[in-house]
Design a protein around this nucleic acid. Structure first.
Lengths: 298, 298
DNA sequence: TAGTTCCATACCTGTAAGGTATCAATACTT
DNA sequence: AAGTATTGATACCTTACAGGTATGGAACTA
């Protein structure tokens, strides 16, 4: 006995007509007749009486029909729930993040996430804030870690932390640590920074910081990610001003991270996601990202 | 998806070892591996993880296992009940009865029986008491309505009623109704009766009755059934002594049924069946025969 | 490190599911 | 009442699929 037999039986029981049932089942009538006969033989029970070209359910057949209906209902429900369990623990999460995000932290969170969602697939995209904003709005990303502020009605935004800025200069130039000497040095140095198109807010912050220090930065090199900026500074091409959190991540580079005294300018790092996204994995990620980071940083 | 897939899955889930499960299922390991793969593909759900030569159930797999167990349990129960329904309403009942049984009554009982057992097949055998006894013992009959006493350890015997005897004489001879005249008439008449071999107990009763009346019967014609006896009496071939219950059944015959006064001899009509016979239809028949007869007779 | 065992995959074979043709019986239509 | 249509069952045929063996890659065990 297979589910096929039960399905054929149930359909004949509903139609009480072999040819109509066969149509419903997309098979021809003779195999249906045979399969029902086989079911009755295997059970040793007559489920239908055939008389005068008409088909009737026996009492046994009536009982069987009710039970088979229940079995199919239960099976369908089971399939639905098992898929739900599977999807809640699997599925996919597309994460955007700015280049300044400490990837080790992100990795740690994803490792922790696998305990809860063993079959999750995560796609990571290191892309600038504006690109992330568009991707989130289009649904190409599930969540983004980016620079605030993020202005979009579609997105929910959550502050992760405020990141003050530091001056980054080549290591051998590190002896200019005192603030008054620093300003003069920076005034006469070429700047390496994000283009205004890629990170307008970031760009404005830079201008503001330099203004507060009394000069206008000479942005000679425009690039689109933090790694390149830092590598170019290390190579002696110029200086930059970047978020403090990068110091920890790039401590191996031969550059100096110099904190600015009395500088009330900082950048806000936020997590953003589409309000309408109901993914269970996303919910977990949003709720647990910060505590996981705190734990791993401790 | 077929029940085969669910069975294969359940067995692997129990064993957590494909080769052992395959042995249990009497197939080789590769088709089992494929069938499980197919099931997972059709569901779109991973039910097992295979790692380091070991097999584990996923959370989805654990849930599915529990549900599949329930589905199989329900299916087995359903099969059992549907067979029970079928067997209670079908099957066969082989009924023996003596020729003196009022067949109309028997028919009435069988009609009533069909309401309860719509698909029952009944086989009726009008055979003498001794033949019935042998048939019951051999299992060729399920139940018998016959003359008591029935002596057999294998059979259970239930009294239906006691049947006094009446003299049966041709109708034109009916004016000999007073008992003193009757005795003389019978003494001079040929007797038509059962042979001693066929109905020894019946035969003995006849001898006893005649002895009580003061004569020995002249049994000229031996026959083996009541119909023939009555027809021969009607034809004027002789007289007989038969159970009173026949009067009702053969009231259309041109014979006289004369009750005997002060005659403490009667015959016991019983129902007998094999102790070991557990047929549901038989049980119903035994329990309902008398009440059904009383109802139809009333 | 060599031998063994696991599950997965490649390839092959026999059987059963589904097809068409048609039958006998009954219903329906004229 | 005769002709036609329709029903479920059976005969015969074809093909897809379930189960087989052989073997691979990876991991375990002695």
């Amino acid at each position: 006995m297979e589910l096929r037999h039960l399905l054929y039986f149930r359909t004949v029981a509903e139609e009480l007509h072999f040819r109509k049932a066969a149509l419903k089942l997309f098979i021809s009538q003779p195999p249906l007749s045979r399969q029902i006969k086989e079911l009755e033989k295997e059970l040793g029970v007559q489920l239908f009486t055939r008389k005068d070209k008409r088909v009737y359910l026996t009492d046994a057949g009536k009982y069987f029909k009710a039970e088979v209906d229940g079995i199919f209902a239960r099976l369908e429900e089971t399939k639905g729930i098992v898929r739900q369990i599977h999807n809640n623990e699997s599925g996919e999460l597309k994460i955007g993040y700015i280049s300044s995000v400490y990837q080790s932290h992100l990795a740690d969170v994803l490792i922790a996430m696998r305990d809860v969602f063993p079959y999750i697939k995560t796609n990571l995209f290191e892309i600038p804030t504006l690109t992330q904003t568009k991707g989130l709005e289009l649904g190409n990303l599930d969540v983004g870690i980016l620079r605030g502020p993020v202005k979009s009605d579609q997105l929910k935004v959550k502050t992760l932390f405020f990141d003050p800025f530091v001056v980054v200069i080549p290591a051998q130039k590190g002896k200019h640590k005192r603030q008054e000497k620093l300003e003069a040095y920076l005034r006469g140095s070429p700047f390496i920074f994000f283009s205004k198109e890629i990170a307008p807010h970031y760009y404005d912050k830079l201008i503001e910081i330099c203004a507060r220090m009394g000069f206008k930065p000479d942005i000679v090199h425009e690039v689109n990610n933090v790694h390149s900026i830092l590598q170019l500074v290390e190579a002696g091409l110029g200086v930059s001003i970047l978020p403090y959190s990068l110091k920890q991540q790039y401590s191996f580079l031969k550059v100096s991270f110099i904190e600015l005294e009395n500088m009330p300018v900082s950048t806000e790092v936020v997590m953003a996601y589409k309000r309408s996204n109901k993914s269970a994995a996303l919910r977990w990620f949003v709720e647990n990202y910060q505590s996981k980071i705190a734990r791993f940083s401790g």
